[in-house]
C-alpha cells in the first residue's frame, strides 16, 4: 500500500487535536497521581497497623492488575452506583490512581533513603516536626525522586491510548475513527506512532538531563 502525503496532511489537524487531549489527560493524570501517591505513601507509613496493611494491599492490588480493566471498572461501575463522570474524568482518575501506586513507592523509597542520622540530628538540634520535614528531610529526599517520577510520567503518557477504549477522543481514538471512515490504516496509525516516538525521544533526552542533574550521586 502506498503512502499518501496529501492524505497525511489532510488528517494532521485531527490528529493534533487528539494529541491535545492526550497531553491534557497526561498532565491531569500526573497531578492526581502525585497527590494520591503522597496519600498512599503516608497511609503506608501510618502507625496504625490495619491502615498501613490495607493501604499496602491496595497498592499491590492496583499494581498487579491492568490499567485497562481499572478504567473499565471506573467507567462502567461508578455510573451504576450513581456517580456520573465524563469519559475524560474517568480516564484521568483511573490513570492517576494507577500511577499513584507507583509514585507512592518512589516517595517511600526517597524518604527512606534519607539517613537516620539526619532525623536524629534534627531532633538533637530541637527542630519541630514541621521544620524537620521542610528543612532537613524533603530537601534531601525530593531531588533523587525527580528522575523516577519523570520516568513514570513518560510511562503514563504512553498509556494514554488506553483511554480510547472508554471513548475519550484522544490521539489514538482520532486515528482509529479516521481509519474506520476512510479504510486507510497506514497513515493514521503510523503518524500516531511517529508522534509518540518523537515526544518520547525528546522526553528521554530531558530525563537523561534530569538524572544527571538530580540523580543520586554514588
Amino acid at each position: 500500500m502506498e503512502w499518501d502525503w496529501a492524505y497525511a496532511r489532510e488528517i494532521l489537524p485531527l490528529l493534533l487535536s487528539g494529541l491535545k487531549v492526550t497531553v491534557i489527560a497526561t498532565v491531569l493524570g500526573a497531578a492526581v497521581a502525585a497527590v494520591l501517591g503522597l496519600v498512599f505513601a503516608l497511609l503506608r507509613r501510618s502507625s496504625n497497623r490495619i491502615v498501613a496493611r490495607t493501604a499496602g494491599f491496595l497498592v499491590q492490588f492496583i499494581r498487579g492488575t491492568p490499567l485497562l480493566v481499572q478504567l473499565y471498572f471506573i467507567f462502567y461501575v461508578l455510573p451504576d452506583i450513581g456517580i456520573r463522570l465524563p469519559a475524560l474524568a474517568a480516564g484521568v482518575i483511573g490513570m492517576g490512581l494507577h500511577y499513584a501506586t507507583y509514585a507512592a513507592e518512589v516517595y517511600r523509597g526517597g524518604i527512606e533513603a534519607v539517613p537516620r542520622g539526619q532525623w536524629e540530628a534534627a531532633r538533637a538540634t530541637n527542630l519541630t516536626m514541621r521544620q524537620t520535614w521542610i528543612n532537613v528531610v524533603l530537601p534531601q529526599a525530593v531531588p533523587p525522586m525527580i528522575p523516577a517520577l519523570a520516568n513514570y510520567l513518560l510511562a503514563m503518557f504512553k498509556e494514554t491510548p488506553l483511554l480510547s477504549a472508554i471513548t475519550v477522543l484522544e490521539m489514538m481514538n482520532q486515528a482509529k475513527s479516521i481509519a474506520n471512515s476512510s479504510y486507510r490504516y497506514v497513515e493514521p496509525m503510523t503518524m500516531v506512532g511517529v508522534f509518540f516516538l518523537v515526544i518520547s525521544l525528546i522526553s528521554v533526552a530531558i530525563l537523561r538531563w534530569l538524572e544527571h542533574r538530580y540523580g543520586r550521586r554514588t
Binding site: 500500500m1 489514538m172 482509529k176 497506514v186 496509525m189 509518540f196 518520547s200
Partner: peptide
C-alpha cells in the same frame, strides 16, 4: 530498543495488526 520503548504497546499492537497486513 528506543523504538519499542518510545511508542506505546497499544500503538505497536494496532500497527502490527492493522498496518502490517497491508504490506
Amino acid at each position: 530498543i528506543e523504538f519499542f520503548r518510545g511508542t506505546s504497546i497499544f500503538v505497536q499492537l494496532f500497527w502490527i495488526y492493522f498496518v502490517l497486513p497491508m504490506t
